[in-house]
């Protein structure tokens, strides 16, 4: 009994210290972004701002010719134009694949599935140059795929197939086969079974997959860097890295930019944390 007594306060103390460690960067991010340039360069970094000041937010958002900062807002929009369609298409595709693999097992599926899964783990450096070469050649009328947002959507959808398929396959596997068999006997076909049995039960699965995809597409960097180098079509991760690459940009502006890049996924996390967790666990295969 006595051991329990001292253990609880120590646990709280430990957790609180760790929480401080985890929150420290966010604290610094927030206070720095709200300080004036003069205050930051004076070297008083850790204190609260003398006076709350949103100048750096404005500079990060709309840019400033004097400070040599290009606006991040268009890139923020690019990220939305990129992540939202990529997420929806990925989820639809993953749902269909998961349905086929879970309920319409065919010969060779046991070999095929791990082969698809492997795509989830490859270092994307190993496909980069062929990807540039192929996308350059793919052009549908006025729709070019290299250096455009639709092109990057395609890339994220393709490389998102493994994870979305995995999550949906595992999800649908939990739905008893008997339900599907019964529907077949009733004469329901492939699409009917999907739309009347699987899809209605899929909402949580969709939420998990969409959160996962949205977060990874929003946060992705390498593909965007190589495929969407044109500032007009850069997502925010690349634009932020650019901003930070220019040393003459003030720290307060960099922090404001970082905040902009982090807010959407943080919102998703805060609002839908439970599903976020499930996505994380599912992402590790054995779940």
């Amino acid at each position: 009994m006595s051991t329990i007594k001292w253990k609880t306060p120590v646990s709280y103390l430990f957790l609180t210290l760790m929480a401080l460690f985890f929150l420290m960067p966010i604290y610094l991010l927030l206070v720095t972004s709200m300080k004036s340039v003069a205050e930051v360069s004076r070297g008083d970094i850790w204190g609260l701002p003398d006076r709350i000041n949103f100048d750096s937010w404005r500079v990060a958002l709309v840019g400033s010719r004097a400070a040599g900062v290009t606006a991040l807002w268009p890139n923020f929009l690019n990220s939305i134009y990129l992540a939202v369609p990529a997420t929806i298409i990925s989820a639809m595709l993953g749902s269909m694949n998961g349905y086929v693999l879970a309920k319409w097992k065919f010969r060779g599926a046991n070999v095929l599935f791990p082969l698809i899964m492997f795509g989830m783990f490859i270092p994307y450096q190993s496909v980069l140059v062929p990807l540039v070469q192929l996308l350059q050649k793919m052009q549908f009328g006025p729709l070019k795929l290299y250096g455009t947002i639709p092109g990057l959507i395609l890339v994220h959808v393709v490389y998102g197939i493994p994870i979305t398929t995995l999550i949906f396959r595992n999800y649908y596997a939990a739905i008893p086969d008997e339900m599907v068999e019964a529907a077949k006997i009733d004469g329901a076909g492939f699409f009917r079974i999907y739309s009347s049995i699987l899809f209605p039960l899929s909402v949580p699965g969709f939420v998990v997959v969409m959160i996962w995809q949205f977060t990874s597409v929003w946060n992705e960097f390498l593909f965007a860097l190589v495929l969407n180098g044109n500032p007009k079509v850069q997502p925010i991760t690349v634009a932020l890295n650019n901003l930070a690459g220019s040393f003459q940009v003030d720290w307060s502006v960099q922090m404001a930019g970082a905040l902009m890049a982090a807010i959407p996924t943080l919102l998703v996390y805060i609002l839908l944390g439970r599903f976020f967790m499930r996505g994380l666990l599912a992402g590790s295969l054995k779940g």
Binding site: Q136, K144, Y146, G147, V226, L227, G229, N230, N242, S246
Partner: peptide, 21 residues
């Protein structure tokens, strides 16, 4: 494109040229 006496920019330009953009 910012950074390092153009070294970052040159990499970006190269990918854009390779990609036909």
């Amino acid at each position: 494109v910012a950074g390092g006496a153009g070294s970052d920019a040159k990499a970006v330009l190269k990918t854009r040229m390779l990609g036909g953009d």
